[in-house]
């Protein structure tokens, strides 16, 4: 179990966490790891808070993990980073999409959207903040936000032997290939890797 690594992807239902986990698992399987991934469907998906978990290593047992067990968090939305902060190991790394999405309760004024989510994460964890939403819009399609974010985190996975660009090429649909390759590199650039 010693070499098992765990990623938590958090966001709002419909934001595209599944593609990120497909990219991750695609690369990790190719590299020869045992891989497990877990997600939930149904009621929770309708605009609610959702998480996907990916784990890899020589032998992975649990498809999910608990508090203090994630090496990396990929948060597709600011508040969804702080919601699951206690899943991160104390030395874990967070990459956060610098983007706020109201919940039904904050949109209708029943609750206040909390201020300072990103700063709160930066205070405690190594945190990479990427305006993935803005970058994706500039590229012409807000939907590729997930691939921007993936580009920003992939060097932190510690899997230098995996050609992540190749994995993106193999995974995304052909008609969206050019856009997603741009999104991947824009994410890497935003995280200071290119």
């Amino acid at each position: 179990m010693s070499n098992v690594k765990s990623i938590l992807i958090s966001g709002v239902g419909g934001q595209g966490a599944i593609l990120i986990s497909r990219l991750l698992t695609g690369g990790l399987i190719k590299a020869g790891y045992d891989v497990k991934q877990s997600e939930v469907h149904g009621m929770a998906q309708r605009g609610g808070s959702v998480t996907t978990q990916v784990r890899w290593g020589d032998k992975v047992y649990g498809p999910v993990f608990g508090k203090g067990q994630a090496d990396i968090m990929i948060a597709l939305e600011q508040m969804e980073a702080v919601r699951y902060a206690d899943f991160l190991k104390p030395d874990g790394v967070a990459v956060i999409n610098d983007y706020k999405r109201d919940s039904m309760t904050t949109a209708s004024g029943l609750e206040e959207y909390p201020e300072g989510c990103v700063e709160a994460m930066q205070e405690k964890f190594e945190t990479i903040v990427v305006d993935a939403d803005g970058i994706a819009r500039e590229l012409g399609n807000a939907k590729c936000m997930n691939v921007v974010l993936f580009g920003a985190i992939c060097d932190k996975l510690g899997e230098d032997g995996i050609d992540w660009e190749e994995i993106v090429k193999e995974t995304v649909p052909a008609k969206a290939l050019e856009l997603n390759i741009k999104a991947f590199h824009a994410g890497r650039a935003a995280a200071g890797m290119e």
Binding site: A44, E80, P114
Partner: peptide, 30 residues
């Protein structure tokens, strides 16, 4: 989950950091 079994059966507390901001609810909606 593995951590809950560690905690409840073996008495091992998870190492976590608490952040200063609390998330508010995000229930599913139509």
């Amino acid at each position: 989950n593995p951590q809950l079994i560690s905690e409840r059966v073996l008495g091992i507390q998870p190492e976590t950091k608490e952040v200063s901001v609390k998330a508010v609810s995000r229930p599913p909606a139509l």
